[in-house]
Design a protein around this nucleic acid. Structure first.
Lengths: 165, 165
DNA sequence: GGCTTGCTTCGAGTGCACTCCAACTCGCTA
DNA sequence: TAGCGAGTTGGAGTGCACTCGAAGCAAGCC
């Protein structure tokens, strides 16, 4: 039998929360800066810096003044990390976060910001695929040591391709 | 009828050569720095800087000392541009170029370098796709103005997803 | 001849995103 | 009580990839 008032068992570890930020996030402060650093791949330095510039809301502190991150912080960090990883500038992330702080009335603006970023991401994927084709071609060329033997000891040619930009 | 000694008609414009660098490149110096800048999207400053640090071989000069780029330069520039666009550092591009200068004996090394870069490109594509899913989810959320109404005016949640790293 | 445009050089400056430093505090263990 | 390790701060420093400025030269045009 469960106790009458079942204690929440879903206290997932810091990196669990970070790598799978689903559901309504808990707001209990419980992760040290070094735990969050380990989970997120950011350094403690960078975490403090994010907070200083306003990417994170002021983090809860322990009695002795140490930062204690809650799951909601991890959720935000996980999303910001995705944006950074995909090339959004810190300035734009800040814009997004500041809109989020203003509440519901900024849904439109936030959506627009994400739409714009999505387009950039799509464009980048296209660029990467195009380059992948060039790399494949050249790698094959080297693998067979073909074609430019005896030719100029220079960079070989790229394959025929459509102009994408 | 064609003439007996047909004059080469394939003198393509600078941006044509740059955007479709196929075939054995001509080595006749014939493009001004501003033409190359316009075709490549790099500034004249950056082109000179590329040459200074060794990414480009010393470019031919006119009688009055001005740079005159040949098609082979454009080919190299086009490839280097692809590498840059896909996140290769200038230092690594330099490594590649220096290997290329050493001739056939560096085929292996060059291939390895490109293989490593190809893996990075593939990884980046995967990251971008994962983020695309998150963006789609959030954009839908905003579009419907659903779910976090009345909840914390904070960054909403990300969808369930497999850990990719 | 005078003007504009485009080029030359070198070295210094810029913007971004961290990254580190020095000096300090706190809680804990021996 | 001393030492350790992990945390705190503001401000300064770093590395990358450009980016620009200043001063000057050369060609082409009116």
């Amino acid at each position: 039998m469960a106790t009458l008032a079942p204690i929440k068992v879903d206290m997932r570890t810091c990196s669990e929360v970070f790598s799978s930020p689903v559901g309504e996030p808990d707001r209990t402060p419980r992760h040290s800066i070094s735990e969050v650093a380990a989970a997120s791949g950011l350094t403690a330095h960078t975490l403090r810096w994010y907070e200083r510039i306003g990417l994170l809301d002021p983090v809860d502190r322990s009695a002795s003044g140490r930062r204690s991150y809650c799951d909601a912080d991890l959720h935000r960090l996980a999303f910001l990390g995705r944006l950074r990883l995909t090339g959004m500038t810190v300035a734009d992330m800040l814009k997004y976060v500041e809109l989020a702080r203003l509440g519901e009335q900024t849904f439109e603006d936030r959506r627009d910001l994400l739409l714009a970023h999505r387009e950039e991401v799509r464009q980048r994927i296209a660029d990467l695929h195009a380059t992948l084709a060039v790399l494949d071609y050249k790698i094959d060329l080297y693998a067979g040591k073909i074609a430019d033997r005896g030719g100029p000891a220079d960079l070989p040619q790229t394959p025929q391709r459509k102009q994408t930009a």
